[in-house]
């Protein structure tokens, strides 16, 4: 990864110097051991902060949408001829480019508003999984070397194989290389194991309905409504989420179990053809809710019924975005 990191820094520096991007969203080293955190580089000399490794977790497309929306709002009251252009550069792995494609398909911004620094990806570490592997011990220091995570912990020295603690979404990732990019850094990463993509869901589907519902209830009981999942999701960009609308109020503000379930169910259904399985919602959830099980089920249905994989190509429009008035005249549309 060292080599990719060096090239990434060089390219970021060049894009900023040549004014091809006004800001580059990437990752820098975090303040805790074995973490990386999103960062915003605006000066060429800061590009050396950028890192690219198995600790880069968040889907940065979320921040692309945020920055462009903020910029657009700031230009609303400026005369058209005086409006400034802003190009947002982003370090993007496969899933991040899928989210960018969704934004483009949903016309959130134009292709010219973004500059994609594509990077190959061989998966990121699931922080909660790693903690579990070492029995909840506190990580004092750590490095990733040769496929091993070597750690000094409150429980003594520990070593864990990297592939054992990769996030679930990474292990079976189908698109671990960028789908679209302006600058492609490094050579493509070897494929992960997409054949096993729906194994979990298939096993879940075979369970009786009562058991599946019980699992949903159990998982939702953990939720404390902090909204981290929604906030981290690149596809959750509504200016006002239905949860926060007050006229009408769709969902109560309290801890009532049905309110939590409705919030999560509605969010899940808003993800049809829009979830790229980046795992951001899962990784940010402080309580460890298994959101992926349900998102993946919806993703599977979307593929099996409509042949669509969210954000897998600019031409592959999401099923809810390509109503065809000549052919989609199913009775259910008019006589539900």
């Amino acid at each position: 990864m060292e080599n990719i990191e060096t090239k990434l820094r060089e390219e970021a520096k060049r894009l900023l110097l040549e004014k091809k991007a006004d800001v580059i969203i990437g990752y820098e080293k975090g303040t805790l051991p074995l973490t990386a955190t999103p960062c915003f580089i605006t000066k060429p000399e800061e590009a050396d902060k950028l890192v690219w490794n198995n600790l880069c977790t968040q889907n940065l497309a979320k921040f692309v949408h945020d920055l462009i929306t903020q910029h657009k709002n700031s230009q609303k009251r400026v005369k058209p001829e005086d409006r400034k252009k802003k190009v947002v550069g982003v370090v993007a792995r496969g899933c991040t480019t899928r989210s960018l494609i969704i934004h483009l398909q949903e016309r959130q911004y134009g292709r010219e508003d973004i500059c994609i620094l594509g990077v190959p990806c061989d998966g990121y570490v699931d922080g909660k999984g790693l903690k579990g592997k070492i029995g909840g011990a506190d990580i004092i220091d750590g490095v990733i070397e040769g496929g091993q995570i070597k750690m000094k912990t409150s429980d003594g020295d520990k070593t864990v194989a990297l592939k054992e603690v990769l996030a679930d979404c990474c292990v079976t990732c189908r698109f671990n290389n960028p789908i679209i990019s302006d600058v492609l850094i490094g050579s493509p990463a070897p494929p992960m194991n997409p054949e096993a993509e729906y194994d979990d869901v298939t096993a879940f589907e075979s369970k009786p309905i009562e058991e599946r519902w019980a699992y949903f209830i159990k998982e939702m009981e953990k939720c404390m409504r902090c909204n981290a999942c929604r906030q981290a999701c690149p596809s959750c960009y509504c200016p006002i989420c239905f949860v926060e609308q007050s006229q009408p109020q769709w969902v109560g503000i309290g801890e009532d179990a049905t309110d939590t379930q409705v919030f999560q169910l509605m969010r899940l259904y808003h993800m049809v053809g829009r979830c790229v399985d980046c795992g951001s919602c899962v990784s940010v959830c402080p309580m460890g809710v298994d959101l992926r099980k349900f998102l993946k089920k919806i993703d599977k249905d979307c593929f099996e019924f409509f042949g669509n994989r969210a954000g897998s190509g600019m031409e592959d429009m999401p099923p809810l975005g390509k109503f065809d008035e000549h052919h989609d005249k199913g009775d259910f549309v008019y006589n539900p």
């Binding site: 955190t37 999103p38 960062c39 979320k62 404390m224 409504r225 902090c226 909204n227 981290a232 940010v284």
Partner: peptide, 11 residues
Amino acid sequence: GKCLACGTCTY
């Protein structure tokens, strides 16, 4: 800049 505006810290 990178704050997600979630409530994890406060909760």
